[in-house]
C-alpha cells in the first residue's frame, strides 16, 4: 500500500530550483533511501514532505490525503516525523526534555509523555545515563541518538531521516543503522536520505538516485549498487572494479 506519494513535485529556494518534477512512492512498512550528490535535492525532498518548504508545483499525498503546502505542525500531527540533517538537538535543553518535546504533536498527558520517554531510554540505553545532560554537551553520536528518539516520540507512521551518518565515526554509524533497522521492525516506515550509499543500501528495501532535482534511477539495492551511474555519482569511479561490491 502506498503510504507516501510524490507526483511531479518541484520546489525552489528563492531563485534556486532544487526539485524539478520529482515522482516518488513509499509503501507502508518500507525503508526507502534517497541517494545523490550534494545539491541533488535529497534534503529538499524531505523538507517539502514535512512542510518546511512549500512546493511550487506538484502534489504530495500521505495516506491518501494531500499534504503539500501544509504547515509542519500540521504534518507532524498526521504522523510524519522529520529528523533533520545535523541532528539539531536543542542545545539548552536536557536530553530528557529534548526527547519529551518530541511528543508535542500528540495531545497526551505529562505522565504518558514521561512513560514514553522512559521507553525511549530503554530503546537507546547509551543515552539513558545522560538524561539530565544539556544537549550541546553531547557527542555527535549521542546527539544523533537523541534526535532519533525525539523523532520516534511522535509515534510516526513515516519517519524522515536526513543524513543520520553525517560526521559520525564508522562504528557509531553502524550503531545508528542497527537502530534504523530495528525501527522498521516496529512497523514504522522510513524514508532515509544518506550520503553513505553502502550503508544506506544495506538497510533499504528500495532506493532512488537523484541528480539536480530529478530522478535518475530507482530500484532494489543490488541493482543500484551495480549501476554505473550510481557509482559515478559517488566516486566518479567508472574504472573502479567489482571488488568494491558490498559483501
Amino acid at each position: 500500500m502506498k503510504l507516501l506519494e510524490l507526483s511531479e513535485v518541484s520546489a525552489a529556494y528563492g531563485a534556486v530550483q532544487a526539485l524539478r518534477g520529482l515522482d516518488l512512492v513509499v509503501g507502508e512498512g518500507e525503508i526507502v533511501t534517497l541517494l545523490g550528490a550534494n545539491g541533488a535535492g535529497k534534503s529538499t525532498t524531505l523538507r517539502s514532505i514535512s512542510g518546511l518548504l512549500t512546493p511550487n508545483a506538484g502534489e504530495i499525498r500521505f495516506a491518501g490525503q494531500v499534504i503539500s503546502g501544509l504547515h509542519p505542525e500540521k504534518v507532524v500531527r498526521l504522523g510524519i516525523a522529520h529528523v533533520p540533517e545535523g541532528r539539531r538537538v536543542f542545545p539548552g535543553l536536557s536530553v530528557r526534555e529534548n526527547i519529551m518535546l518530541g511528543a508535542s504533536n500528540r495531545r497526551i498527558a505529562r505522565a504518558e509523555m514521561a512513560r514514553d520517554t522512559a521507553e525511549m531510554f530503554a530503546l537507546f540505553p547509551d543515552i539513558a545515563r545522560f538524561a539530565d545532560t544539556l544537549g550541546w554537551m553531547l557527542s555527535g553520536g549521542q546527539q544523533q541518538m537523541v534526535a532519533l528518539a525525539r523523532g520516534l516520540m511522535a509515534r510516526p507512521r513515516l519517519l524522515l531521516l536526513d543524513e543520520p551518518s553525517l560526521g559520525l565515526a564508522p562504528l557509531i554509524v553502524q550503531q545508528v543503522f542497527r537502530i534504523i533497522a530495528r525501527i522498521r521492525e516496529t512497523g514504522t516506515t522510513v524514508l532515509l536520505v544518506e550520503q553513505n550509499a553502502r550503508i544506506a543500501l544495506s538497510v533499504a528495501d528500495r532506493g532512488y538516485v537523484l541528480e539536480t532535482g530529478r530522478l535518475v534511477v530507482s530500484g532494489k539495492p543490488d541493482a543500484l549498487w551495480n549501476n554505473e551511474e550510481v557509482r559515478a555519482a559517488y566516486l566518479g569511479g567508472k574504472r573502479l572494479s567489482e571488488e568494491q561490491k558490498p559483501a
Partner: peptide, 14 residues
C-alpha cells in the same frame, strides 16, 4: 580514489 580508506569513508565501511 582507489585508496581503501577513501573508499570506506565515501561508500561506507562495513
Amino acid at each position: 580514489l582507489r585508496h581503501p580508506e577513501v573508499v570506506a569513508a565515501y561508500l561506507g565501511e562495513v
